[in-house]
């Protein structure tokens, strides 16, 4: 028998299927309007990818902002708990998990069992979430995937005043107009974001090892700025978007 974890996020929905303590299949899709349908679709595609029958899944656990909409789930767990469980599974030495999603960010302190001891959350302001970097990439007229490469190519950064995404968009446009290289602006965007994530993380205390999960962990430009702001080396999972779904699947195992 197997178990499944489904993470219905603001931007993407992820499904992970585990058998005998191992990941056997996973799938990520864009979250649609109907959250239950998105969960169903991600789950079915994961089953198909692994060649697994639905009847072979004993327990399904949902997490993410849309977790309450998943009608076929047996249980649900919070994103905080899912992040801690998923990260501890991959990195048993982890004490601090930072998760940056599209519209939320959280810092979680946990024990090696994945048990949460403390956490801090930003769900109020887009400037402290992944959509900040996306919006700035749009203002720079480059692809989000290019942000890292631009940022890493910069020798210095420029001061940015605006914190708010709406104001920062105008500021980035005027920086571009005043001929500041896009590389330097990209670096400043990552620095600003890293500084906000750092203040949130300091609220729970930064204890090694530190792991970063969520899609932004695939952006080495941001990771570099965050490592320098936190003054630690950060552990990065290979597929950071799946950590929430993985954590949900793990909680279905026990």
């Amino acid at each position: 028998m197997g178990v499944a974890g489904i993470d219905v996020g603001a931007r993407t929905t992820k499904a992970v299927i585990m058998q005998n303590g191992k990941i056997v299949a996973k799938r990520m899709i864009i979250t649609g309007i109907d959250l239950n349908e998105s969960a169903e679709q991600a789950f079915n595609e994961a089953l198909k990818a692994g060649g697994i029958n639905r009847s072979d899944i004993s327990t399904i656990v949902a997490t993410g902002m849309g977790r309450k909409s998943v009608s076929f789930a047996n249980e649900e767990i919070t994103e905080v708990s899912a992040a801690a469980k998923g990260a501890s599974f991959l990195f048993p030495t982890v004490k601090t998990v930072i998760e940056v999603g599209a519209e939320e960010a959280r810092a979680v302190r946990c024990e090696s069992t994945g048990k949460v001891t403390d956490f801090a959350l930003n769900e109020k302001c887009a400037a402290g979430a992944g959509s900040f970097v996306e919006a700035m990439a749009r203002a720079l007229e480059i692809k989000v995937e290019e942000m890292a490469q631009f940022s890493l190519a910069a020798e210095k950064s420029v001061p940015m005043n605006a914190q708010c995404v709406v104001f920062a968009e105008s500021e980035v446009v005027s920086l571009v107009h005043s001929k500041i290289p896009k590389t330097e602006i990209a670096r400043s965007v990552h620095e600003a974001m890293a500084s906000r994530i750092t203040s949130m993380t300091r609220r729970v205390g930064v204890e090694k090892d530190v792991a970063l999960v969520g899609g932004i962990a695939m952006n080495p430009g941001f990771v570099k700025c965050l490592e320098s702001a936190l003054d630690v080396q950060i552990m990065l999972p290979e597929e950071p978007e799946y950590i929430g779904a993985l954590g949900a699947a793990i909680s279905a195992t026990v």
């Binding site: 603001a10 309007i33 519209e103 109020k124 302001c125 887009a126 400037a127 919006a135 995404v165 709406v166």
Partner: peptide, 17 residues
């Protein structure tokens, strides 16, 4: 319910839908 303009936009689109 969202304070942030970015999130309020998402919320408004949801309300229209």
């Amino acid at each position: 319910s969202s304070t942030c303009v970015v999130f309020a936009k998402t919320e408004a689109v949801g309300l229209l839908r």
